[in-house]
Simulated scan of single mutants.
Amino acid sequence: MLRLHFTAGDLPRTRVADGPDPLWECVLSLHRLREERPESNLSGWREHVLRHSKAPLPLLLPLVPARGYFPDFLTPAESAEGFEAGLDALLSTRRSRIRDQMGRLATSRPLTPWARDVSEGGAATLRRLGAALRAYEHTAIGTWWPRLRTQVDSDRTWRARTQCTHGTEGMLKTFGPVLRWRPPVLEADYPVDKEVRLRGRGLLLIPSYFCHRTPVALADSSLPPTLVYPARIPEPLSTSLTAPGHARQETLARLLGHTRAAVLESLGSSCTTSELARRAGVSLSSASEHASVLRAAGLISSSRQRNCVRHALTPMGLALLDAPPAGRPRSVTA
């Protein structure tokens, strides 16, 4: 059983995150990838990921067991700002913290030679881990991010509206039966007994597409209290995560040109111009040029953050990517 103990000061500091967190989705999707009988809406996703992630999976799976503890440094808070921000924070984790958390992982199962290398926190090993995470995110998350986010956003909007009209306690009551609000304690079924005392820090609730059945909390009680929970997705929005079809890709290519269509397809999650160039396999100048055309057409938006420009799909761009090929209805799970 998981029990989160609130004080009066925690309620005003409790909130729902703005949307899904890309590194949490990466880690939790590794759990779903291992399921012997995946849900029907994940079957196409699972087949695609297993086919295209043969290189990163042997490096990531030993760090994220099917059950039980996995290191907190894999899901830093900075990931809320985007995958690359989270990855930068992950790769900057202190060696002592990596060693401690990997040591805890070793108490539940023997570490593979690769996992033992990770526990040392060497620069070359972390670069290799970063490359594996980036490749996996692009294949397993980035391709589906617009649809995934749209589905999760429906949950987030509902919780936030409830909090505005009925207060935080009213919002906490909406999580049943996964979470049970019994003032001043929020309870959930959990693999181990765990008591978390918020002590005025509040709680960040992160909705997740890949979180399944039970919520997940950070193991380190000194970190900002965080709880990832399975997003409640209404049936009309519960579309299957299937790989982009060849017919749709050809339609986009005829409309936009092959390179520009590839650039648009690469914008699964928001990214910088450099990241966009790498994903689409084009030069930096070419990515910038195509981004300008797509922005002028209203298909993407761009904003400057510090020393870089980040691009994201607009609702029109998302609708274009998510549209079925001509003559075929959109598939929705019953």
Rank of each mutant, 00 (worst) to 15 (best):
L264E: 00
T272N: 04
P244W: 04
A262D: 11
A247H: 13
A261W: 00
E275W: 00
S269M: 14
L252C: 02
E265V: 07
C271W: 03
G268M: 03
T239E: 10
G245D: 10
S266H: 03
T251R: 06
G245Y: 08
E235P: 08
T239R: 14
E250N: 08
S274Y: 06
L255D: 05
G257H: 07
E275H: 03
L241H: 03
E250R: 11
L267R: 02
E235V: 13
L276R: 02
R260A: 10
A262C: 13
G257D: 05
G257F: 10
S269Q: 10
S274G: 13
L241F: 14
P234K: 11
E275V: 03
S270N: 10
Q249P: 04
G268K: 00
V263H: 00
L252R: 00
L252A: 01
S238M: 14
A253V: 05
L252K: 00
S238E: 12
P244Y: 06
Q249F: 09
L237T: 01
T251I: 09
G268A: 06
P244I: 05
G257A: 12
P236Q: 08
C271N: 09
S270D: 10
L256G: 02
S266A: 14
L255R: 08
L237Y: 04
E250G: 04
L252M: 04
